[in-house]
Nucleic acid binder design. Structure first.
Lengths: 144, 144
DNA sequence: GTATATGCAAACCGTTTGCATGGCT
DNA sequence: AGCCATGCAAACGGTTTGCATATAC
């Protein structure tokens, strides 16, 4: 669980380092969002609206358009990945390696599947001249 | 390849049988779309706009709203599956069994991956009280 | 000082819906 | 006759964009 001793400054330090890795200027808004996303070092799956609401409830003043623009900037900088599981909204993931996801259909939540669990032991022959950009595995869950 | 001897009547017969399987009334528009989708017995991946354009170029008069409604009806009837790979549009697949897809990022096309190719040899432990609704595997391709 | 980020509101675009008309059984 | 499907246009919702202002370097 999260260490309760962690300070806001510690989160911001991580946020700043993270932005630096992406070559992005540490503006107030980016730093606020980055701190929320990676401040505690855990992997996150957020939607734009969700992050906007989270920032607002944390007292950060960031416009919704900036949240969208910033998430896109984070993706372009290679700091996050966009995940599409639901046509009506986009999810953004702070974890960069290929890994499978659980998608909770009734609550519209996305989470990591235990990484040891999914084993793709073989990929199909790829079409001529093509390479794999990414392999997305989404395990859609419903109440049993 | 498609057998050039096949007649429109043969497509319609398949379309009618297909609609029947889904318990859907064989209206002119549904029959037209069904014939395009399953008339030749091949698996198809279409977008609503794409199917609308295809129908129009085949001389079928169907409104875009009806294409959307009809594709949804086909999905609800269990005749097709909706596949989400691109936040900006939905794809609809006539093939019903779990199988992996190739997504051609630059052309925004979706196709089946050779079924023998992908082997998921193990699934992760599922959360308590949950079951798998579906497992989506999308292999995103880019030019090498 | 210059390039870039932000905020707002308006535009955008794929999709859905309300309602009147028309067709299937 | 009654129910359901269709078509149109308007509504919808998430996302993007144009432009004026503010901030980082």
């Amino acid at each position: 669980m999260t260490d309760p001793i962690q300070t806001t400054e510690a989160w911001q330090a991580r946020g700043t380092a993270w932005l630096e890795r992406g070559g992005l200027r540490p503006t107030r808004q980016r730093l606020a969002l980055a701190s929320l996303l990676v401040g505690d070092g855990m992997d996150r799956h957020v939607t734009a609206e969700g992050l906007f609401a989270w920032a607002a409830s944390a007292g950060e003043k960031v416009s919704l358009a900036t949240v969208y623009n910033t998430l896109r900037a984070f993706c372009d900088a290679g700091l996050m990945h966009e995940i599409v599981v639901d046509g009506s909204r986009s999810y953004f993931d702070t974890r960069l390696d290929d890994h499978a996801h659980f998608y909770w259909e009734e609550s519209h939540r996305l989470s990591d599947a235990p990484s040891e669990g999914v084993v793709i032991s073989q990929l199909p022959a790829l079409p001529e001249g093509m390479e794999v950009a990414r392999v997305d595995v989404v395990i859609r869950l419903r109440r049993a």
